[in-house]
Amino acid sequence: MIIAERKPIEDIRRMVEGHDRVLVLGCGTCVAVCMAGGEKEVAILASALRMAEPEKEFKEATIERQCEREFIEEVRTTSDGYDLILSLACGAGVGFTAELLEEHRVVPGLNTKSIGVAEQPGNWSERCLACGECVLDLTGAVCPIARCSKSLLNGPCGGSQDGMCEIDPKNVQCGWQIIYDRLAKLGRLDLMEENRPPKDWSAAHAGGPRRVLREDAEP
């Protein structure tokens, strides 16, 4: 899922400055699961804002997803009369809401962090960088692009020590140590010996904004 985190309340208050009627709009999918922008978080943020700015109106609404046209259409009428939409979606959702409800000013209430997983309750971590050309078949399904701090393709650099990465040896694991251990368990350490060629980064964002087209899904 997309992992996000709410912006500090001071930043959010700065964004609502000069706006009297604010629609706080949640997103019920990824960011609801990672406890950043679902119905519950909308309620918590709205009441915090009401306490801080009692003269303003903060209306609450949450839709299933802000990355799909049909769900955004559901709040078109609700949004009438509000001069600001504070979107608690990921960056894609904020942008798409603004694109469709174009008469409104839309601002982000979250910082989008990563494509990741719920490793533990209250602990979400990055697992994919959407590089556009998956290599997990070569690495025991542990991603070197996302989990190595330098996105190296040919194994760990010299900064791997006791399973940890040089950038933060107390908190960040060496992604390649995880790959190595996984391949050892699978009996596939031979994969560590193969030279991997330079990556085609044009499949990633380096090639420009990406689009997936499927004729069979077109109306």
Partner: peptide, 10 residues
């Protein structure tokens, strides 16, 4: 560096 066994492979 670690894993030690990988160093000669590298």
């Amino acid at each position: 560096g670690d894993p030690f066994e990988f160093r000669v492979i590298r």
